[in-house]
Computed example of a mutant assay.
Amino acid sequence: MYRRRRPAAAAVLLAAALTLTACSSGSGKSDAAGSAAPAKPPASSAAPDPADAAPAPAGSPDAKPTGPVLPDAKLTPATGTFKENEKKYLSGRVPEKTDPAAVLQTGQEACERVRRTAKRDKDAAVGSIVAGEVRGAKDAITHLCPEQKPLLAAAEKGIGDGTRATPAAGTYRALTQEPGRCVWQARSKDGAVLASGPESPAKAGDKLTATIPAGTAEFESTGCYAWIPA
């Protein structure tokens, strides 16, 4: 009788242990999610595409690698050939012992995300580039999807959250879903505040703008997602 019951008791204990482990693991994920809230897309953008939230593939740096890379002569796929624009994108970008096709796919995915987002909302696409959410967007657009260069040009005039040194003077508008969280400040070289905002508490649906005076040494913003010229 004991021999028949012992496996059943062990199974119950094992199930309980697995349940406790799953609960503990789930709690850890919740804590991590709460401590790293994702950046907010522009208020005018449509509901985000689930694919947009997918993490960038591991080993896909924004800039070219600093370590040894494959020489251009060895940038060949397992089958077929790379196009000329693809070779230019891959040049100096593929770490040794890495499949060039995998690196190319990273750039193609960046292009596809920009293309897909721009189809719904061009401001959202520009904002995602300014905020750094599309990894390696500049080189990907330049070589793999040049039709998106107008968006890249607009993004290069933008300002992301954080501190920007010697920003171009002018009026900018914030791309954010939560204007109530957005605050900004323009400072001179000696740290004097030249301008700040918003002037009054913002609420959902408000369009926020910031005028950066000439001679601003630093422009700092928090909770504004991204700024583009108004």
Rank of each mutant, 00 (worst) to 15 (best):
G180P: 04
G180A: 11
G180M: 05
G180K: 13
G180F: 00
R181V: 00
R181M: 07
R181S: 11
R181Y: 04
R181N: 06
R181F: 05
R181K: 13
C182E: 05
C182V: 01
C182K: 01
C182Y: 06
V183F: 09
V183E: 12
W184D: 02
Q185C: 03
Q185V: 07
Q185A: 11
Q185K: 14
Q185W: 03
A186R: 04
A186L: 03
A186D: 00
A186Y: 01
S188K: 13
S188P: 01
S188H: 11
S188D: 12
K189P: 03
K189H: 08
K189C: 05
D190V: 01
G191H: 08
G191W: 09
G191E: 09
G191M: 14
G191Y: 12
G191P: 09
A192H: 07
A192C: 02
A192T: 14
A192P: 00
A192R: 13
V193K: 12
V193A: 08
V193W: 05
L194Y: 04
A195C: 04
A195R: 08
S196D: 12
G197P: 02
G197N: 00
P198N: 01
P198V: 07
P198I: 04
P198D: 06
E199S: 15
E199V: 13
E199K: 14
E199H: 09
E199T: 13
E199N: 07
S200T: 15
S200A: 14
P201G: 06
P201E: 11
P201I: 08
A202W: 11
A202S: 05
A202N: 01
A202H: 06
K203S: 14
K203G: 12
K203N: 14
K203E: 15
A204Q: 15
A204W: 08
A204R: 14
A204Y: 09
A204M: 13
G205A: 05
D206P: 03
D206E: 08
D206G: 03
K207F: 05
K207S: 07
L208M: 10
L208P: 01
L208D: 10
L208K: 02
T209E: 15
T209D: 10
A210V: 01
A210T: 04
A210M: 13
A210R: 07
A210G: 04
A210D: 00
T211G: 01
I212W: 07
I212R: 10
I212L: 12
I212N: 06
P213Y: 09
P213M: 10
P213I: 11
P213K: 10
P213H: 09
A214D: 15
G215T: 09
G215S: 11
G215A: 08
G215W: 03
G215V: 10
G215P: 08
T216K: 06
T216L: 05
T216N: 07
T216C: 02
T216Q: 02
T216R: 06
A217F: 13
A217N: 12
A217D: 14
A217P: 03
A217G: 04
E218D: 15
E218F: 15
E218Y: 13
E218W: 12
F219L: 02
F219G: 00
F219S: 05
E220T: 15
E220G: 01
S221V: 05
S221N: 09
S221M: 11
S221C: 10
T222R: 14
G223C: 08
G223W: 08
G223E: 10
G223P: 02
G223F: 06
